[in-house]
């Protein structure tokens, strides 16, 4: 993990370059392979900073407006747990966000405008039901 962190740090510093470095990074595509993670990124692009609790609510909100069914406290907890144990670590590994487990604070890193566009477009139309 140390090696990939270094390469991401180098790439983050080259945000002004024409070619967004994330686009040639496998971790980036793995991070984007989940619909829930794309939603998280899309939300963070607008809000910059939020909490795990709020992210769980936002994902529940997407679910409830799609299905028409109220999301219960159990649904919310399940999404919360998935965020903490699966989604957020993957986004951290890809160098896209910072997550502080003690406070639950989640922050987006500075992203190349082209990368941000891809993320925005990736939630525009729901392609599959993965999560």
């Amino acid at each position: 993990m140390g090696g990939s962190d270094n390469s991401i740090n180098r790439r983050r510093h080259s945000v002004e370059d024409d070619f967004p470095p994330q686009l040639s990074d496998d971790q980036f595509y793995r991070a984007l392979s989940s619909y829930h993670r794309r939603c998280v990124l899309s939300y963070l692009l607008e809000e910059n900073e939020t909490t795990v609790d709020e992210l769980a609510t936002v994902l529940c909100g997407w679910e409830t407006t799609t299905t028409g069914t109220m999301q219960t406290s159990t649904d919310h907890s399940k999404i919360y747990v998935a965020l903490v144990h699966v989604h957020l670590p993957k986004l951290v590994d890809a160098g896209l966000i910072e997550y502080e487990p003690n406070t639950g604070s989640v922050q987006i890193n500075t992203l190349h405008p082209q990368v941000a566009d891809i993320i925005r477009q990736s939630v525009g139309v729901r392609q599959s039901d993965d999560s």
Binding site: S42, Y43, E46, G61, T65, H76, V123
Partner: peptide
């Protein structure tokens, strides 16, 4: 919400716990 997020929703909390999102 981000502009392209289609529909508004409401979070309901009771005693600081989320009890529903609709």
């Amino acid at each position: 919400l981000p502009p392209h997020w289609p529909k508004p929703f409401i979070e309901i909390k009771a005693n600081d716990e989320v009890v529903g999102v609709i």
